[in-house]
């Protein structure tokens, strides 16, 4: 088991460090055109094509019936409360399905209800253990902090890709840097991103049962995102680059008038290369859970099985094997074994 962990942990770690080395060596060898223009465009292309490809694949898998985990009993059974929470949990209408989905996407509601099952010492019987299920919110907190920090960081990066820069980016900038410490002002979302992604990684390393089920495909995106955050933070606060030149390059890419801009430090190219790898990797990885949430059958279907008959479109004639036939076949053996039969012969 230790070896299993080592393999799945160290191979992606080595891969990400290798990517850093590739970008470093490439830029030292003056391949700015490759790492500043060609690779970003290729990554964008792979991202778009991969996304379309995966979604077309998904449209080809049928969803024949509802999964009525909850069956909107509140509609047919009058004694069940009909408050908003109940309606969002067991949506009868599309409106409520949209509401449930919005809560899922914006607030990670299913994750909020995460429970953890543990053997705990029993206070009444100190020598015995007791199985308890308790509401475990840390994963939700880590996940939601990570995702929103990521979103804010990306939105703030729009200042490199737009001219003039839209007003909401200035607003985000000043809210994010409102503590006004350090030069340049520290963005809180950058730190939250780092801490939350660090927690998500440590969770997998430190908890034995999670370590056991974690694969290279779980560690690789975490390492990639952590290394993007680390290089970004190093670049902003410690190993500075010429930001005007960065924007010149980024705007060139965004306007399809690409150009190679001289005088940008190598750390920028490392950051950019890791981002490109992340985008190219996205459609083929677990990160596709982002579009995937919208296609979760337990989340995107109204729970109307109690009053709408859903027929499996390819129901086929099933040849039943009835009890009478069963008894006919095994009657003698059953009588011999003293098993009661309905017909004696």
């Amino acid at each position: 088991m230790t070896d299993f962990f080592k393999l799945h942990f160290f191979v992606p770690l080595a891969a990400v460090l290798g990517l850093v080395v590739v970008a470093y060596v490439g830029v030292q060898a003056n391949l700015q055109l490759l790492f500043g223009v060609v690779v970003p465009y290729m990554a964008a292309l792979i991202f778009i094509e991969g996304m379309v490809y995966r979604l077309i694949q998904w449209t080809r898998s049928p969803v024949p019936f509802r999964i009525p985990t909850t069956a909107a009993q509140n509609k047919s059974l009058p004694w069940i409360e009909k408050n908003l929470g109940e309606k969002l949990d067991n949506p009868e209408t599309t409106k409520h399905v949209v509401g449930r989905m919005a809560l899922e996407v914006l607030a990670f509601r299913s994750l909020f209800r995460n429970t953890r099952t543990e053997l705990r010492q029993d206070p009444d019987h100190p020598e015995g253990a007791r199985l308890i299920h308790w509401s475990y919110k840390w994963l939700w907190l880590g996940a939601i902090a990570f995702h929103y920090a990521f979103l804010v960081v990306i939105l703030r990066h729009l200042r490199f890709f737009t001219e003039p820069v839209p007003g909401f980016v200035y607003l985000l900038d000043s809210v994010d840097g409102f503590l006004q410490f350090f030069v340049p002002v520290v963005y809180l979302s950058g730190l939250v991103l780092l801490v939350a992604a660090g927690y998500l990684l440590l969770r997998r390393i430190l908890r034995p049962e999670l370590r056991y089920i974690s694969l290279a495909a779980d560690y690789f995106p975490l390492f990639l995102i952590l290394s993007i955050a680390i290089t970004g933070i190093l670049m902003r606060y410690f190993y500075k680059v010429d930001i005007v030149a960065v924007k010149d390059l980024a705007l060139g890419l965004a306007t399809f008038k690409p150009k190679v801009v001289a005088g940008i430090g190598v750390i920028f190219y490392i950051h950019l290369f890791l981002v490109c790898v992340l985008f190219a990797y996205f459609p083929f990885s677990k990160l596709m859970h982002a579009p995937g949430v919208f296609l979760s059958p337990t989340r995107n279907l109204a729970c109307n099985s109690r009053w709408v008959r859903h027929v499996n479109p390819w129901n086929y004639p099933v040849k039943f094997h009835s009890y009478a036939e069963y008894e006919d076949k095994f009657r003698e053996a059953m009588i011999e074994a003293d098993i009661p039969v309905e017909k004696e012969s």
């Binding site: 449209t59 049928p62 296609l295």
Partner: peptide, 17 residues
């Protein structure tokens, strides 16, 4: 026991996706 069901090869819910 039964015929293998004929599942149509097509795009499902393509409109939304």
């Amino acid at each position: 026991f039964a015929e293998r069901p004929k599942v149509e090869k097509k795009i499902y819910d393509g409109k939304y996706i």
